[in-house]
């Protein structure tokens, strides 16, 4: 009696597996979610690239959503992204904080002086320790933070369409 049902088992398993594989096919596995989304920005304090006053996590504790951008002068995609950051800060008046990742201060300053400064304040993370605290994989990466809580993380350079379709709506809705 029981084997009557049992003989359909392989068929059922195959159909389930195919459905699963079909959806996996369209699933982008390269995107990585960060476990820090929804959590408070970890405590840190970094020397300011241009001034005296250090960049700390308290700077990011504002009511309006702000961006924290991890960048480097040696990172080529960061150059491409820089224009977008300029647009965000000048046109849309978004406050952007910079985290200069494992960089040479002179090179970093040259980079900003040549391409313009979209940042309110830049912290230099020479050892890359703060970046690990923030769960950074590489440069560039951008966090959206509101009230000191990370609400979104973007990996890789922000493109024009991503700015319009992802970054700006999140900023407006928070």
């Amino acid at each position: 009696m029981k084997s009557n049902y049992l003989k359909f088992l392989p068929l059922a398993l195959i159909i389930l597996l195919s459905i699963f594989l079909f959806f996996s096919l369209n699933n982008d596995t390269s995107k990585l979610s960060s476990p820090l989304v929804g959590k408070k920005v970890p405590e840190f304090s970094l020397p300011n690239l241009f001034g005296q006053e250090e960049l700390t996590n308290l700077d990011l504790n504002t009511e309006n959503p702000i961006l924290l951008n991890v960048w480097s002068s040696w990172c080529i995609p960061c150059r491409a992204e820089h224009d977008i950051l300029m647009v965000l800060s000048e046109l849309y008046k978004v406050e952007i904080f910079g985290l200069n990742y494992k960089d040479n201060s002179e090179e970093a300053k040259k980079f900003i002086n040549n391409l313009g400064n979209p940042f309110v304040k830049i912290g230099s993370d020479n050892s890359g320790r703060t970046a690990i605290d923030l769960g950074v994989y590489g440069v560039p990466e951008t966090y959206i933070i509101a009230n000191g809580i990370i609400i979104y993380k973007h990996i890789g350079p922000i493109h024009m369409n991503e700015m319009e379709e992802k970054i700006l709506p999140i900023i407006r809705n928070n």
């Binding site: 195959i14 195919s18 096919l25």
Partner: peptide, 28 residues
């Protein structure tokens, strides 16, 4: 290439559904 993946998946699906249906029908 996802397009190729889709074809192979469809192919596997047809082969397996056919063979396991045949199995369910004839196994006894």
């Amino acid at each position: 290439d996802p397009g190729r993946g889709l074809f192979i998946l469809l192919f596997i699906f047809l082969i397996l559904v056919f063979s396991f249906s045949l199995f369910a029908y004839n196994s006894e």
